[in-house]
């Protein structure tokens, strides 16, 4: 799975989070910060992680979620890490 494909999937997830301004989703990059750039409430981050698990067909490790950063690339890395573990 390509990184951009995951970014695109994450944008689709972020569109379902009603507390995020849809206008801010038009120019998402891997450096976009969920907290600082999108003003995502901290309580929504776990919801986004759970939706990402569902969308990409993976299950994250609890420790990895605990250490998850708030940038898009952090979530992309997490998905790829889970995919790699899945394919072992």
């Amino acid at each position: 799975m390509e990184r951009q494909e995951i970014v695109n999937g994450l944008v689709e997830i972020l569109k379902t989070v009603r507390t995020i301004d849809p206008e801010k989703l038009k120019h998402i990059t891997e450096d976009t910060d969920l907290r600082a750039d999108l003003n995502t409430p901290s309580t929504e981050l776990i919801n986004i992680a759970a939706k990402a698990e569902h969308k990409f067909g993976v299950e994250f490790e609890d420790d990895d979620i605990d250490e998850l950063g708030s940038k898009i690339k952090d979530v992309v890395d997490l998905v790829l890490k889970a995919k790699a573990r899945q394919n072992k």
């Binding site: 309580t43 929504e44 981050l45 776990i46 919801n47 992680a49 759970a50 299950e59 609890d62 979620i65």
Partner: peptide, 9 residues
């Protein structure tokens, strides 16, 4: 399922 399935609310 994981506890986070219920989300944070």
């Amino acid at each position: 399922r994981k506890s986070r399935i219920a989300g944070s609310h």
